[in-house]
Design a protein around this nucleic acid. Sequence first.
DNA 1: GGGGAGAGATGCCGC
DNA 2: GCGGCATTTCTCCCC
Lengths: 246, 246
Amino acid sequence: MADLSKYEIIINHALERRESVVFGCNCTIRYSGRAESYLAAGDRIVVIKQDGTLLVHQPEGSTPANYMKNGSSHTVNFRDAKIYFKSQNLDLKEFMDIEIFNIYFYHSQRLDDDQMLEIAGTEEDMAKMLFNEPSLIEEGFRPLSTEEHTKYGFIDLFGYDKDSVLTVVECKRYNGDLSAVTQLRRYVEKIKDAKGLERVRGILACPKISSHALKMLQDWGFEFRMINPPNYLERYDKGQRKLEGF
Amino acid sequence: MADLSKYEIIINHALERRESVVFGCNCTIRYSGRAESYLAAGDRIVVIKQDGTLLVHQPEGSTPANYMKNGSSHTVNFRDAKIYFKSQNLDLKEFMDIEIFNIYFYHSQRLDDDQMLEIAGTEEDMAKMLFNEPSLIEEGFRPLSTEEHTKYGFIDLFGYDKDSVLTVVECKRYNGDLSAVTQLRRYVEKIKDAKGLERVRGILACPKISSHALKMLQDWGFEFRMINPPNYLERYDKGQRKLEGF
DNA sequence: GGGGAGAGATGCCGC
DNA sequence: GCGGCATTTCTCCCC
């Protein structure tokens, strides 16, 4: 087994220089903060970012086994042939202890990246699409606003139907579920109450809806519109064409 | 700038052997699937796990800039002094293209880890604690079940109060918000309806609650109990003691 | 900083 | 597979 003693200095120097650190190791992990957790010995990939974020990834799965947020501070100590890696975030009262038995690889360097992800096809895009093409809701629908932060809540799409009845549209980019229905109900009830209206329509716009959610929706007098978010599969065909090249 | 051509073979071999792959690079990223995204050139850390999971991390922040889920397949090609890394998940209809201009470091190997995270202090622990110490809800409370999957929903804690009135307790390990209140309301209404009961009590048990949520809770005749999840800060004191060593 | 809601949410469990 | 829901959710935006 490799001599780990050198990593005490190596990692501490990298952290002082605010480099990004990546290493593979065999370790145990204890976490204490919003919950308590323990992870017995195994091989993991550890990433420490330039902002203090710490990620520990097991060799399978999307989500980190353990992590510390942005702003955490870290110390490294060598003792009894092991590296003791400690992280703390005093503001969040979170603590993590990594006991490292072996380090398989190590790299650290400064990374330069000032780019932000550009993204399309969100719920907001969906609301804007319906604002620009109100007939997708129904003929005669006259939208007033999208993504409005009212004191009654955050309403995706708001307008009048052909009979000038106030109508709240809640958009979901994927499956409509029970909480989407209760969210819609909450908005409709608050607006009825605040404006003293007898009737306010509620419409849930989403590609599909669970049967329980549909029943609840209809029981409460609301309506479902099957609507896909914009561009949802636009590049899928392109992707399929790309398959030729695979 | 380094010659990248060798990485076509190196990475493909590692993927064939189902190794875990980690590298640092300068790249652009396009994603198409549940949404569409583009990330302009910058330095990132890329991880490909043994189950096909792909993560791309920018040098700051907890969450990956882009990712592909478990089960995705990957190919690497060298052309025009660049590495073209493509990922696809046909089941999920998701595609990702990484155009790599430089690779700063690279490592791949098989990682062995069959351990599962043990965790304490979850909502389930909270419900069990209240089941074992029902007086934390109120004197005379008689719990029937925890974490029960009924056809009315997934109810954290269920029981009778001292007057034998059926009582639903919804636990939240952190802040009680509007959706917690609507969730509670949904359970209470469904149980009243299903059992033909005039009155069913609803209690929201959590460490704190937002003012709007409290108002809505009280408007609907439900109650708030300030209750902390078990062990929440137990090791915090231990952590504080550890601070001496920092 | 808290509140409210979306997310390419993820992951778990039950049916 | 879908459904319902917790998550050390995270993140953004607004008050």
